[in-house]
Computed example of a mutant assay.
Amino acid sequence: MKPTPERIVEAARDILVREGARAVTMRRVADTAGVTAMAVHKHCANRQALLDDVAERAFRRLGESRGRRAEGADGESRVFGLLEDFWTSPWAARISTRS
């Protein structure tokens, strides 16, 4: 079984992708991750911190797995390459159309 913090962030990400940011609540994430609401609060101070963790992990994964076509390029080209990869990813379109 994955560590609790990872399960919490993955649950929040799944809800975010499927239903949008408004659907991400601490209690809903806890239910989806199979933990208590207190466990979510132990690992994330509040909802915004949880959403920040989701974004940080998504960008980290994106940076690790994509954007390689910009290797060796200047910083600006690499940033724009990563942004293009992000916005052309299948789940980014779903996130950007929800509030």
Rank of each mutant, 00 (worst) to 15 (best):
A58S: 14
V29R: 15
L16K: 11
F86A: 14
D85H: 07
E6T: 12
V79E: 11
R68A: 09
L82K: 05
R61T: 10
T88S: 14
S65G: 14
R57F: 02
R27I: 02
V9A: 13
V40T: 04
E64L: 13
V40W: 08
R94M: 09
L50R: 13
G75H: 10
A92D: 03
G34W: 01
M38T: 06
R69P: 01
A73R: 15
A11I: 05
A92V: 04
A30K: 03
R94Y: 06
S65K: 15
R18D: 08
E84T: 10
V35P: 01
A37S: 13
E6C: 07
A45K: 15
R18C: 06
A70D: 12
T36C: 09
S96D: 09
A33W: 00
S65P: 02
R47A: 01
I8R: 14
A11K: 00
R94S: 13
R13Y: 05
V24M: 06
S77T: 13
R18G: 00
A11R: 03
S65N: 14
E56P: 08
T25P: 13
G67Q: 13
G34A: 06
R78I: 05
V9H: 02
R57N: 09
D74T: 08
R13P: 01
P5T: 02
R7C: 03
G20N: 12
S89M: 07
A11W: 09
W91F: 09
D31Y: 03
C44L: 11
A33G: 03
L82G: 12
H41E: 06
R57V: 02
E6M: 13
T4S: 05
V54A: 08
H43K: 05
A37W: 06
W87H: 14
I8H: 04
A58E: 14
P5H: 08
L83E: 03
R60T: 09
A30E: 02
S89T: 02
